[in-house]
Design a protein around this nucleic acid. Structure first.
Length: 270
DNA sequence: ATGTCGTGCAAAGCACGA
């Protein structure tokens, strides 16, 4: 089974590339972020023609998350129980479903903008709500149940996860507060059964030994200059990690005409 | 290099978010 996560930065703008990517890589489950779609404009019919049932949670223009599956899609949950809002309303940043017996979430953590801003506080609140959701669900499902939080976390877990840590001094995505909030999510059900941050290789090539990034800024030719970040994560239970044979970034999806600024993160399971 | 994208509004340019 193949599970992938991809911030597509508008499903409308990316539909041609999404279609060809699905045909090429044939994931069984794809967790999507930043669809920028409404539930009405979500291309469910086109995706169904490609063999995927899908669920979408979005209000248009910004945010929006979805799950595509060709191995079943059950127990759909839109949003987090304790999800905070921003500017007076809740956004569409989390959707969960059970696919082929695996409980999965498609997560789009707020960017945070600048350290100490209202949006930064919102980001930390969102991460706390995700920890609560994870703790409650894992307790309910049992710690042995295969479980995964995948998506765009907008946090680089370590200094090695950005192209040059000195370039990030004073910026979001690398602060101790954000990093410890992610660790707290991993430990939501206790340190013994912590979710594992699956480390991908940098591309589809098994011999690729470059540092693995999942995001490169559109501005300033970030991809062309190798200025990447590993901010799309797969945090999975031991039961799911044990089934994982390969984890890789589909770096090729960042190339060519009209890419997203993120590349898909792919898990190949036993 | 505040250098690229995508969206929506109201318009063929701008504001906003990333």
């Amino acid at each position: 089974m193949r599970i992938a996560t991809w911030n597509v930065n508008s499903v409308k703008a990316r539909l041609p590339r999404l279609r060809s990517w699905l045909a090429e890589r044939e994931p069984d489950v794809l967790l999507v972020q930043e669809t920028k779609a409404t539930d009405e404009s979500w291309p469910a019919t086109e995706l169904a023609e490609l063999g995927y049932e899908s669920v979408h949670h979005g209000t248009g223009r910004w945010n929006g998350v979805a799950i595509l599956s060709r191995v079943g899609l059950a127990d759909v949950t839109r949003g987090l129980t304790a999800e905070p809002g921003f500017g007076g309303s809740t956004e569409a940043r989390a959707i969960g479903a059970t696919c082929a017996g695996v409980r999965l979430w498609s997560i789009y953590v707020p960017n945070g903008r600048t350290v100490g801003s209202d949006h930064f506080g919102y980001k930390l609140s969102f991460l706390r709500a995700l920890r609560e959701q994870c703790a409650a669900e894992r307790a309910e499902l049992g710690l042995a149940a295969p479980y995964g939080l995948l998506g765009d976390f907008n946090v680089a877990p370590t200094d090695a996860d950005v192209w040059d840590i000195t370039a990030f001094d004073g910026f979001t995505h690398v602060t101790p507060e954000e990093r410890s909030a992610v660790v707290e999510i991993q430990r939501a059900a206790g340190a013994d059964e912590a979710l594992i941050d699956l480390m991908p290789r940098a591309s589809a090539d098994p011999r690729d030994e470059r540092r693995p990034y999942t995001f490169w800024e559109m501005r300033m030719l970030g991809f062309q200059k190798g200025r990447g970040m590993r901010i799309d994560l797969a945090l999975v239970s031991k039961s799911l990690a044990d089934r994982t044979q390969a984890v890789w970034v589909d770096r090729d999806a960042r190339k060519g005409e009209g890419p997203s600024d993120h590349a898909p993160l792919v898990l190949d399971l036993d």
